[in-house]
Design a protein around this nucleic acid. Structure first.
Lengths: 242, 242
DNA sequence: CGACAACTTGACGGGCGTCAACCGGAGTGG
DNA sequence: CCACTCCGGTTGACGCCCGTCAAGTTGTCG
């Protein structure tokens, strides 16, 4: 019922950036019972409408959350990296209001909600860190509403790239100026409210303008300051989660 | 330092729909110290970037939250009615990442964050209700990302109207089929990522199609089922906050 | 080497933005 | 009580950004 040692390393490091956890807090998190499962790329791991009794933590790989409109259009709501809790809202909301899906092959830890609730009651500092994490989640959604609602295509894509680069670096996955995109251009399109055709054109124009260099899905940001300006990117909304 | 009796009536009723609060929980909420202020229409009550030491509860009137992009465009993130906590995120996020502004004249109660934190530690059921409230907030943002990202103009506006109608009714402010809009068409535009010109045209076409009847800002929904279908509106994302 | 997904490119069209003028009601002051 | 102002709403002409459609091209994995 319990997985390997230190599965929650990335998650604990993230929570420690948010609140002061003492030795007992960390130990209590590590003592959580959980099950690890390996998931293939493109697999749905939480489905909208489903009753949920466990929360999942992404241990390895990349994932995203999305909703589908009646017209068939898919909106991606967030991208996730190792250490992210993918559905903390299920702590107090019994039904999933959106889907969670892997991008790459991934490892996911499932924690029973009852266990999480007990942890929160016994270790208030952990509860605060988790609550704060869910509030940052919401802040990012607000920024995305602004992004898809008010920015033009070029800014939207640039903003999404900046956020991904910064969060990735904050999670200790390397430099924000040089990284590999795990997602397809169609997924970028669904995250920004555009079409994959238009995303493709904009990425090319970033290349032509010398803002980024591309080699397949490897991105190197040649001019971070210009990128930031085009993106209208101010990391304040990440609330030092990055 | 403390306001009139039962100022938090609407808020407590809302929290009671979310979690089981006992007599002591209710009394603890009512015992919170707070200050009431009266705010003129159109006034900004929380400003982006500001350090915050109090949370505000809307006692009377209507308000909205918004962010502004570098190109000057404003995105409205949510509309609020009496009983809503306008910035619960400041419990654990010290800086405002967006603005809060009144629509109509309003009454607002300011609660010191320290007092709220103590309340949460001492009355876990209240903490759970508040956390749940903030998670529903986030769920609504997710739906708005979908709304501005993937629906066409007509659906977006219809969706916004449905949500407002349902939440208004759930707060005990009358029927969802007959209500007065407090916001201007320009504010509807900024909430849906459209222009006020286009909002005007769409509202007229709702009238022409017999979905709604309008008299100034009074809306009566002539055909709720058609409205719901046009809006692609499924109240599940409100998680029975409505 | 065939199949398939992701990416790329071009032509074309439409939904919604932009610009600009005008209207109507509410408030205000002479 | 009427003129003036201002804000919100309404209407029409025009145009662009981005979607749509469709045809390649590339890379990868069996």
């Amino acid at each position: 019922m319990s997985g390997q040692i230190d599965a929650f390393g990335a998650m604990i490091r993230k929570l420690e950036r948010l609140a002061n956890l003492d030795e007992i807090d960390r130990a209590a998190i590590e003592a959580l019972s959980f099950q690890v499962s390996t998931v293939a790329p493109g697999e749905t791991i939480v489905r909208e409408g489903q009753r949920v009794s466990q929360c999942c933590v992404l241990l390895d790989g990349f994932a995203f959350r999305h909703k589908v409109a009646a017209n068939g259009n898919r909106q991606i709501l967030s991208f996730h990296l190792p250490g992210d809790i993918l559905d903390l809202q299920h702590l107090f909301l019994p039904r999933a209001d959106h889907n969670v899906q892997t991008i790459t092959a991934a490892q996911v830890a499932w924690i029973p909600i009852d266990a999480l609730r007990s942890l929160i009651r016994e270790r208030p500092a952990v509860g605060e860190a988790l609550w704060q994490d869910s509030l940052i989640d919401a802040s990012i959604f607000r920024e995305w509403v602004l992004n898809v609602g008010q920015r033009d295509a070029k800014s939207r894509i640039a903003h999404m790239l900046c956020e991904f680069a910064i969060r990735r670096a904050a999670a200790g996955l390397g430099s924000p100026e040089q990284f590999e995109l795990p997602m397809t251009q169609e997924q970028i399109a669904d995250a920004t409210g555009l079409t994959s055709v238009h995303v493709n054109r904009m990425l090319q124009s970033f290349g032509a303008e010398g803002v980024i260099r591309r080699d397949k899905r490897n991105i190197s940001v040649a001019n971070w300051d210009r990128m930031r300006r085009v993106a209208d990117f101010d990391p304040a909304y990440l609330h030092a989660a990055a």
